[in-house]
Computed example of a mutant assay.
Amino acid sequence: MTKSAGSRRHLPSSPFNRPAQAAAPIEIFDVGDRVSHDQFGLGRIIGIEGDNDAVLIDFSGRQGRILSPYAKLTKL
């Protein structure tokens, strides 16, 4: 007796037929929030562009502009 392909379980390590995953929600930042960036280190939000499309950050005297979805940026 054989099983149909639709009833087989998905193996997590398999690259084939992966079920769709929900996108992670984009984090919302406010002016004054302390943040950590994987490459630039610790900083503070000094400005927000648009509807959280980009944030301006002061990294101890060096300023940077990080675009959404902020993959390497975490709120402290």
Rank of each mutant, 00 (worst) to 15 (best):
6 G>W: 03
70 Y>N: 02
30 D>P: 03
30 D>A: 14
44 R>P: 01
45 I>R: 05
71 A>M: 11
42 L>F: 07
25 P>L: 03
26 I>F: 03
40 F>W: 05
27 E>Y: 00
40 F>H: 06
74 T>M: 13
52 N>L: 12
58 D>N: 15
47 G>W: 09
75 K>V: 11
48 I>S: 01
1 M>S: 12
75 K>N: 10
3 K>A: 14
65 R>Y: 02
42 L>E: 10
75 K>C: 12
76 L>Q: 13
31 V>N: 01
76 L>H: 06
31 V>T: 05
9 R>D: 07
65 R>F: 06
14 S>K: 01
12 P>I: 03
61 G>K: 12
17 N>F: 14
16 F>C: 02
68 S>D: 03
49 E>D: 13
19 P>T: 00
16 F>I: 04
8 R>A: 04
51 D>C: 11
9 R>H: 08
65 R>N: 08
32 G>V: 02
42 L>V: 07
60 S>Q: 14
10 H>G: 05
13 S>R: 08
10 H>K: 14
52 N>A: 13
48 I>F: 00
58 D>Y: 05
34 R>M: 12
59 F>I: 02
23 A>V: 11
21 Q>R: 13
40 F>A: 10
51 D>A: 14
74 T>Q: 15
50 G>P: 00
28 I>T: 11
56 L>D: 08
16 F>R: 05
2 T>W: 04
52 N>T: 05
3 K>Q: 14
69 P>G: 10
42 L>I: 09
67 L>V: 03
42 L>S: 13
66 I>V: 15
19 P>N: 01
38 D>H: 05
33 D>Q: 01
7 S>A: 09
16 F>Y: 07
18 R>V: 12
29 F>C: 04
75 K>R: 15
22 A>V: 06
51 D>Y: 12
8 R>H: 05
7 S>D: 08
50 G>C: 03
17 N>V: 08
4 S>T: 14
43 G>A: 03
18 R>I: 08
24 A>K: 09
2 T>M: 10
65 R>C: 14
41 G>H: 01
20 A>D: 00
36 S>C: 09
